[in-house]
């Protein structure tokens, strides 16, 4: 899945993509590297995506950074919580690469 997202984004221009393996890696990288947008899954092996959203929003430099969550079809509750915690938008798996590209451009504008 991550490979697909990265490939889709790389097809767009002007991005540097910081790809991390899991939630822990994200916790380590985010405070050090200022990114302009975060895309996260909800189901991860170490911490869940909701916790990551909350963590990101608690960091002063990420108060208003666009944040996109990828969720699984049928997990409406998780998605609602993500939005309540401050995620800007969501995308349901499975999705078309164009949908992701459209959402990303929209959130970065």
């Amino acid at each position: 899945m991550r490979g697909l997202i990265v490939a889709t984004l790389e097809a767009m221009d002007d991005f540097t993509i910081v790809e991390v393996e899991n939630g822990f890696e994200a916790l380590r990288v985010l405070p050090r590297e200022k990114v302009d947008m975060v895309i996260t899954d909800i189901n991860m092996p170490d911490i869940n995506g909701l916790e990551l959203v909350k963590f990101i929003r608690s960091q002063p430099q990420y108060k208003s950074t666009p944040l996109l969550i990828i969720s699984t079809e049928g997990s409406d509750k998780d998605r609602e919580k993500g939005l309540a915690l401050g995620a800007d938008s969501y995308l349901n798996k499975p999705f078309q690469p164009e949908e992701l590209q459209r959402l990303v451009s929209q959130l970065l504008d």
Partner: peptide, 28 residues
Amino acid sequence: LDSFDVDLASLTDNLKQHGEVVSTLPGQ
């Protein structure tokens, strides 16, 4: 920050022997 994944894994491994780890919540 440098070693939390290892430290945390060791703590959760330990906790799992006494119960179930439901979630890990990170904070500042």
